[in-house]
Design a protein around this nucleic acid. Structure first.
Lengths: 339, 339
DNA sequence: GCCAGATTTGTTAGCGCTACCATATCCCAC
DNA sequence: GTGGGATATGGTAGCGCTAACAAATCTGGC
C-alpha cells in the first residue's frame, strides 16, 4: 500500500518497477522503444500504486501543453454547448483537450479569462467573436499559438476565423420576409450591448429593409433570463400596442418560440396575418406546434472546423491565417407565408 | 518591441525593470513587501512587454494549482450549466478556478476525464453522481484533495457530497399524484442506462405507488436528442395506445413540456382528465401556456454549496467529510388537479 | 566467437518559477 | 552617529518531468 500522505512521482514507480525514471516516462507516454517485458513491469507497478502522472511537470519539461483554450460568452443559451460538441468531436481524435472559459458577454471578463488561459500556455485558442479589448487583441497577437475566432466573420480576425456573416444572415431573412409580402415588421431582441452578432444581424436586416423602402415599425429589447416567457410577454405587448404589425423578427429562437406560442394561443393566423422568424436553428423548435422560421447558425460545423484548424496548425507548424466562411440556410418552417 | 519568436519569461521582465526575478515574481503575485516605486517599475516593464506569467512553472515550483476540476455528464440539458453558474459564483470570490470536463454519461469516459484532471493536480474535484468505476473511485480516494460528489445523496460518497435524494423526490411526486386521485399512471423517460438519478427517481416513484397498491400502467423510454419533440410524439403514442392513462410522469421537464404541448393541442383536459409532471424546474416552463408540475433540483444551490466546501477545505486544510442534503420543493403548477 | 548495427536502457541538464534564507537598505531613538 | 529592528531585495535550490545524448545490451552473419 502506498503512503497516502505524499503524492507519487515517477521515481516511486521506477523503484517499484526496478527501472529508471526515464523508462517509466517512456512507457507511460508510449514514446520510444521499450521492450514488452519492461513495459509490462512498469505498467503493473504504476497501476498497483495508482500513479497519476504530473502533467504540470511534464508540460514544463517538454514545453508542450496539449490544451486548447475555448472562450465563449455563455453556456446557458444552447448555442455554445453545440459548438463545444463540435470541438470535442474533433479534438477527441487528437492529443489535444479543450478547456472552456466563459466571459458572460463582458469584454473585461473575457480579457481576464484569456489572460488566465494564456498563462497555462495552451497549444491554441478558440475564442468567440471578433470584438475584444485592445489588451485582449494584443495578448492574442503575442501569444504565438494558433488563434481561431469563431461564429462571426464580419470583421478582421487576429489570426484565423470560422463563422458566418451575421450581417448577411440578417439581410437574407429580411429579403425572404419582404418577398413574402410582409410590410409592417417589428424586431424583438436581447438587450446585450456586447452581443455583436445579434447587433450585426439587425443591422443587415434593417439595411435590406431600407433597400425596399421599409423601416422597422418597432424594436423592443429585453434583458434577463427566461427567454421563452419574455418572448411571449413582449409579443403580446407589441401586438396590442401596434396591431398593424404583420411580422416579428426575433434575435433568437427561444424568444421566437415564446412569441409563436403566444400567437397560436391568442388565435392569430400564423403565417397568414402574422409571420414570425428567429435565429439559430435550435432543435427545440422541432417540438413546437408549428415550425418557426429560422436560420441555422452552423454551430456544430463551426466547432469542428475551428478545432480542425487548431489541430492542423499544431502538427504542421505555423500555417497561414485562414478565414472560413460558412453559409447558413434559411429554414422557412411554417411561420412565413409561402409565395 | 519584444522578440515575437520566443515567449517571455520572468527574466525578460526583470532585466527590463532592472530588478531580480524574485522581485518581479513578488510584484506579479502581490506577495511579500515591495516598495511602491519598484512595484511600479516592474508593472510597467511587464505591461510594456506584454508578459503573461507561466502558471505551469509557477504551479510546479509552489506545488499549488488553483484549479478545481468539475466533471459533469453533459452540457446540453440545461441542468449542468446552472450548477456551473453556482460554482463560478462562489469560486469567483476566491483564487480558485473551475475547469470543466464532460463525461457524456459514460463511466469509462468519466474515468478518462478524471485521470486527465488529476494529472493537473487540481486543488479539488467536484463530480456529478455517486456511481463511478472502481478505478475512478480509487483515484478519487487516493487524490488527496477535497472531493465533492454532487446532485445525488442516495449512496456512499468517497468524501463529501451535496445533493438531493432523487428516490425521495420520486416518492414525493407519486404521493402528490395519488393524493390528487390519479390512478392510471404512466412513466416516460430517457433511455440512459447511466442516468442513475433518473433511475432512482423512478424507483422511488414506483415504490410509493406500490405502497398505494398501484403499479405503472406503462413505461416508455426514448433515446436521442430532441426531447421536446420526443415528448410530444411519445405522449401521443401512449395516449392512443392506452386511453385509460390519466397521468404522465416525465423524467425531465423538456419531454414533459413536449407532452404538455401535445395534450393542449389535442384538446385533452389538463389537469382534469390527464395530469402531467416533470422534473428539474427549468425556467423554460415559465413560458409555456400552462405551468408544468415539477420539482426544483436545487441546481444553483448545489453548485454553490459544493464550491463552498472545496474552498473551505482548501483554506482550512483537511476538514471532515460532509454530506449536505438539499430539499427540492414540489411545484404543482397547473397540471395536477388541486384536491 | 566476435563485431557492426540495431535495439533498449540510463544519465544529465534544464524547463520557468517560487520557497527559503541571506543580505542589503532604511529609519529613527538615543 | 550608531545600533537594531523593520523593510526591501537577491541568491540558491529544487518542484517532477522530458530532450538529448551516452551507454549497455542484444542481434545475427561470417
Amino acid at each position: 500500500m502506498p503512503n497516502p500522505k505524499r503524492t507519487l512521482t515517477l521515481n516511486d514507480v521506477s523503484e517499484v518497477a526496478g527501472v529508471s525514471e526515464m523508462t517509466v516516462s517512456r512507457v507511460l507516454r508510449n514514446r520510444g522503444d521499450v521492450s514488452p517485458a519492461t513495459r509490462e513491469k512498469v505498467l503493473k507497478a504504476a497501476r498497483s500504486l495508482g500513479y497519476v502522472p504530473n502533467k504540470i511537470a511534464g508540460a514544463l519539461a517538454s514545453q508542450r501543453v496539449n490544451l486548447v483554450g475555448v472562450i465563449i460568452p455563455s453556456l446557458s443559451n444552447m448555442v455554445f454547448p453545440e459548438v463545444l460538441t463540435g470541438i470535442s468531436e474533433v479534438l477527441d481524435g487528437t492529443a489535444l483537450q479543450p478547456v472552456v472559459g466563459v466571459s458572460n458577454y463582458l469584454p473585461d471578463r473575457e480579457e481576464t479569462v484569456l489572460y488566465e488561459m494564456l498563462s497555462w500556455r495552451p497549444s491554441g485558442i478558440i475564442i468567440a467573436g471578433l470584438e475584444h479589448t485592445d489588451a485582449s487583441r494584443a495578448m492574442l497577437a503575442q501569444a504565438n499559438v494558433p488563434i481561431v475566432e469563431i461564429m462571426d466573420i464580419d470583421g478582421t480576425p487576429v489570426d484565423s476565423a470560422v463563422g458566418i456573416s451575421h450581417r448577411r444572415a440578417g439581410r437574407q431573412m429580411a429579403e425572404a420576409i419582404v418577398a413574402a409580402g410582409y410590410r409592417n415588421i417589428a424586431f424583438l431582441g436581447t438587450q446585450m450591448p456586447n452581443d455583436h452578432r445579434a447587433r450585426k444581424r439587425l443591422e443587415g436586416f434593417e439595411a435590406e429593409l431600407a433597400r425596399h423602402g421599409l423601416t422597422l415599425v418597432e424594436r423592443a429589447f429585453y434583458s434577463g433570463s427566461s427567454a421563452l416567457l419574455k418572448g411571449r410577454e413582449m409579443t403580446e405587448a407589441i401586438l396590442k400596442r401596434n396591431p398593424s404589425v404583420d411580422f416579428l423578427y426575433y434575435s433568437n429562437d427561444m424568444i421566437g418560440a415564446g412569441g409563436l406560442l403566444y400567437c397560436l394561443e391568442a388565435g392569430y393566423d400564423v403565417p397568414g396575418k402574422i409571420g414570425l422568424a428567429g435565429f439559430n436553428g435550435v432543435e427545440l423548435l422541432d417540438g413546437l406546434p408549428r415550425k418557426l422560421a429560422t436560420m441555422d447558425a452552423c454551430r456544430l460545423e463551426i466547432g469542428r472546423r475551428s478545432a480542425e484548424l487548431i489541430s492542423l496548425k499544431q502538427t504542421n507548424g505555423k500555417a497561414a491565417p485562414e478565414v472560413i466562411e460558412l453559409f447558413p440556410v434559411l429554414q422557412p418552417g411554417d411561420t412565413i407565408r409561402r409565395v
